[in-house]
Amino acid sequence: MTTVAAILKHKGYSVFTISPTALISEVAAILNEHRIGAVLVIDHANQLLGVVSERDIVRSLAANGARTLEMTAGQLMTRALHLAHPDTTVAEAMQMMTAGRFRHLPVVDHEALIGLVSIGDVVKARIMQQEATVESLTAYVTGSS
């Protein structure tokens, strides 16, 4: 079974992080510049505090208007995070994300942040698993190797 570690090995371990004092206007610029959907919020001791996603920004814009851009990441971030570990399977990650209705899953190993997977990463890995299974079964049924 494919794990989150395999996804990170393929996509890389790079994670964009910001401090809780970063302005949402800065967060939006980072999201746009790097074409990503979320950044993780960490403190000066590299402790994971939360995540700010495009969704968080849009919801705040709807509620608070342009004032949102002057808010800080600490004010807007989602604090209740679900975490994955390197040995979390793709199916488990997909189930967590679907049930919790979130799109970004931080990956920690021994309490250290090692990566971030998105729902797109998880779906891509799941599709690759399914394609490999179909190819294997087709080869078995047709007698080719």
Results as ranks from 00 to 15, higher is better:
83 L>F: 09
40 L>H: 04
76 L>T: 01
43 D>Y: 02
141 V>K: 04
78 T>C: 06
83 L>N: 01
131 E>M: 10
26 E>Y: 07
40 L>G: 03
115 G>M: 05
142 T>N: 12
89 T>N: 09
129 Q>S: 13
31 L>A: 12
53 S>C: 10
123 V>C: 10
121 D>R: 05
96 M>G: 06
136 S>N: 13
127 I>A: 10
66 A>L: 10
41 V>F: 00
23 L>V: 00
63 A>H: 07
57 I>L: 08
20 P>C: 01
33 E>H: 10
73 A>C: 01
80 A>C: 03
36 I>G: 08
126 R>D: 11
82 H>V: 08
21 T>M: 00
49 L>P: 00
97 M>V: 13
86 P>S: 11
4 V>A: 09
8 L>Q: 13
48 L>I: 03
105 L>D: 07
16 F>W: 06
97 M>N: 12
73 A>E: 02
99 A>D: 15
119 I>W: 04
122 V>M: 11
87 D>C: 05
110 H>D: 15
116 L>F: 03
131 E>G: 03
75 Q>R: 02
134 V>F: 14
57 I>D: 05
52 V>L: 04
63 A>E: 09
16 F>C: 02
48 L>A: 01
41 V>A: 02
109 D>K: 12
13 Y>M: 04
124 K>N: 10
48 L>V: 00
21 T>E: 03
9 K>C: 10
73 A>I: 00
105 L>R: 09
118 S>A: 09
2 T>P: 15
91 A>G: 10
55 R>H: 13
63 A>T: 06
145 S>I: 08
132 A>H: 15
131 E>Q: 14
64 N>H: 07
29 A>L: 12
35 R>I: 06
92 E>A: 15
51 V>G: 02
130 Q>N: 14
70 E>C: 00
97 M>K: 13
55 R>E: 12
36 I>L: 09
137 L>A: 11
27 V>T: 03
30 I>T: 10
108 V>A: 01
120 G>S: 13
3 T>Q: 15
97 M>L: 13
80 A>N: 12
